[in-house]
């Protein structure tokens, strides 16, 4: 089970809801992924087109734990406001703190992320900060009391996979709360590797929504994350420099 704050989940896949070709494909991908946690953003409504459908109307929202992000925030203050707006819906108390410091790389601003997380913890939120793969920042966030740490594998939407496995392994090793690898995953094998390394979960969006067949990719990711987790729990063999025979050396029937 994945435990985040007071919530328990049997799925270790957290799925984003951005940029699907249409709501029907999105719904099917969400179903197939077996995710229990959906992320989304908070934005102004278009008051002149009130009839526009919203993705929440397509999904049975009560089946999911909603994880709003604070995307769009450039400062801690903005992030705190967005989190409070989301909470005022009465639909969620978890928040993904996302304070972007650079529009080109979409890397998080570490100082503002830390400040926003501290403030939101004081306000009683269940706080999951999206952070870089900085090991000491991850430690500081955990020390604040964050309920999970979410280091990026590589820049958001880049699909580059885990570009700093060493740092990620340090973060996983030192952290007692769940480490959820968030952003940059491109393929099922990326997700499986994160899980084999001991990540508690993976948060994906573009890898699924941008795939040629998002529904099939959602299924592939579900299987990869389950396989990676099983592999981690099973415990891999150590790497050796030379071969070790699997078949017995004795009793070979060759004279």
């Amino acid at each position: 089970m994945l435990q985040i704050g007071n919530n328990e989940f049997s799925s270790r896949l957290l799925l984003g809801t951005g940029k699907y070709p249409d709501f029907d494909i999105q719904k099917e991908a969400v179903d197939v992924s077996a995710t229990e946690i959906l992320t989304f953003s908070v934005r102004r409504m278009n008051i002149f087109e009130a009839s526009q459908p919203n993705f929440l109307e397509k999904l049975n929202v009560s089946k999911y734990t909603l994880l709003p992000n604070t995307a769009g925030a450039k400062t801690a203050k903005e992030a705190v406001r967005i989190a409070k707006l989301a909470k005022a819906s009465g639909l969620c108390d978890m928040v993904k703190v996302e304070v972007i410091g650079c529009q080109k790389t979409l890397l998080p601003d570490p100082v503002e992320t830390l400040k926003a997380s501290e403030e939101l913890l004081k306000e009683g939120f269940t706080v999951l900060p999206y952070t870089s793969d900085d090991v000491l920042l991850a430690r500081r966030l955990e020390e604040l009391g964050c309920h999970a740490i979410m280091p990026g594998a590589s820049p958001i939407g880049s699909g580059q996979g885990i570009i700093n496995p060493l740092n990620l392994s340090f973060i996983i090793e030192q952290t007692s709360v769940p480490v959820i690898v968030d952003a940059g995953i491109g393929t099922p094998s990326d997700a499986a590797i994160a899980m084999e390394m001991g990540a508690a979960g993976v948060l994906l969006n573009t890898a699924v929504s941008g795939a040629k067949d998002p529904v099939k990719m959602a299924n592939a990711m579900r299987l990869a994350i389950e396989a990676g987790r099983l592999g981690f729990e099973a415990g891999r063999i150590s790497k050796k420099r030379y071969a070790t025979a699997s078949s017995p050396g004795e009793g070979v029937s060759i004279s």
Partner: peptide
């Protein structure tokens, strides 16, 4: 007045 809602996001 600000009116906001949830939209797709990651």
């Amino acid at each position: 007045i600000e009116l906001v809602h949830f939209v797709g996001g990651g």
